[in-house]
């Protein structure tokens, strides 16, 4: 039963990466890490699965294509067929620019919204754990602890170069 988080703050991304890797390999539960920039290799060190936003983006893009093509074709052939320049009503080459733009619009805006929801970010949201320096120059590892192993985990991160270790309650 998890009660608390052990917050270990490192000076460098390399220390954070090796500590994270070691924590994962020794079976400790990584709650999260907090870093000022996307540290290369963090994904692999934390053992996080590759993000599936790409799939979301692809599906939203397809939805954009379907919406744009469907609507334009419906308008041009059914709802308001208009002879323009003697071209056929369903003149595909003329429908492509808008189809493309809507594909990008749906995919980009939709993926951003999904990202915000998934990451629990919204205007006015409060940081889950407000940590000193995590947006400046500290590299922080948060490990889950319970009453029994708190001491041991603190020692574990200290051995791996943590400059500062403390405990906080789970948010």
């Amino acid at each position: 039963m998890t009660h608390k988080l052990c917050i270990a703050s490192f000076d460098s991304p390399e220390d954070l990466l090796s500590a994270t890797r070691a924590a994962r390999e020794s079976g400790r539960k990584i709650y999260d890490t907090y870093v000022p920039w996307p540290v290369h290799g963090l994904e692999e060190a934390m053992g996080v699965a590759r993000s599936r936003l790409g799939v979301v983006c692809f599906m939203l893009g397809s939805l954009g294509v379907a919406t744009a093509l469907g609507f334009q074709l419906w308008v041009s052939t059914r709802s308001w067929p208009l002879n323009i320049g003697g071209k056929p009503f369903d003149a595909l080459p003329a429908l492509i620019p808008i189809t493309f733009e809507l594909m990008v619009l749906f995919a980009a805006v939709g993926t951003i919204i999904v990202f915000f929801i998934r990451s629990r970010l919204w205007p006015g949201a409060q940081p889950g754990i407000a940590l000193e320096g995590a947006t400046n120059d500290r590299f922080i590892l948060a490990l889950e602890t319970n009453a029994d192993d708190a001491e041991e985990i603190a020692g574990f991160v200290r051995d791996r170069g943590a400059a500062e270790v403390r405990e906080v309650d789970l948010p």
């Binding site: 890490t33 907090y34 540290v39 963090l42 990202f115 990451s119 919204w122 889950g128 995590a134 947006t135």
Partner: peptide, 13 residues
């Protein structure tokens, strides 16, 4: 938006 530098968020980001 409540950004806290979470590694999981960064990876998605």
């Amino acid at each position: 938006f409540g950004w806290d530098g979470s590694g999981r968020t960064w990876i998605r980001y």
